[in-house]
Design a protein around this nucleic acid. Structure first.
Lengths: 106, 106
DNA sequence: CCTATATTTGGTAGTTATGTCAAATAACCA
DNA sequence: TGGTTATTTGACATAACTACCAAATATAGG
């Protein structure tokens, strides 16, 4: 594997890793429906404020979400909507797995 | 977040996590071009046989690849081709990030 | 059957990720 | 200014991941 190729894979893996956590994935999907402030996530997810804030910062760092401070609150929004099409593929994997376990696929 | 929703997110995150490693991501992309045996990856990646084997087993476990033993060798192939469209989106994120850091986007 | 080759599995040390608490910031309001 | 709320940051214990070595397994060929 060439060095440049390696770097490219590392960069892409970094983005994927940001989404590869149940809480962060769920947040990203919520943000696809519109912006949310940190406090909304804290309430719904029943997690510590700091935990939610850190998850959002991982998504932000990866370039998946953007933040916007308005007054005392910080609103997060999805920067790259294609993330969702992308979820359709993941769901396809899951369905394929389910079919396989049910013996419907070789 | 409801329990069912939580489970769904966990299942999807599990698939994403399997891809969220530079080596595994690169392997998946290679497999999109056709099957490969473990030994081919070992040679190109310059990693221990056991390391490569374990990475492939993570991909298999997630339902992303399938394995086929033929003689002494095991050939892996991509089960879900949509993974690649999905990479286009990740690349879009990267480009978006690059543009942002260059000050081309707010 | 014995050997060599291809691959997987178990053990393990080092690294990285996660979640919580406590403290630090920031902004609004009295 | 001082207090209150919203959020981030730092420190830290715990858990999960990664890569390697060594050992186990499987298969083809002699």
């Amino acid at each position: 594997m060439m060095a440049m190729e390696k770097e490219k894979s590392a960069a892409k893996a970094h983005v994927l890793k940001a989404l590869a956590h149940p809480v962060r994935l769920w947040m990203a999907e919520q943000l696809a429906q519109g912006e949310r402030c940190v406090c909304e996530f804290v309430e719904v997810l029943d997690l510590d404020f700091s935990t939610v804030s850190k998850h959002l910062s991982v998504l932000k760092q990866a370039g998946i979400v953007a933040d916007d401070k308005r007054g005392k609150q910080v609103f997060y929004s999805l920067r790259v909507p294609c993330i969702l099409n992308f979820m359709h593929c993941v769901e396809e994997v899951l369905h394929s797995n389910a079919a396989k376990h049910a013996g419907m696929v070789k």
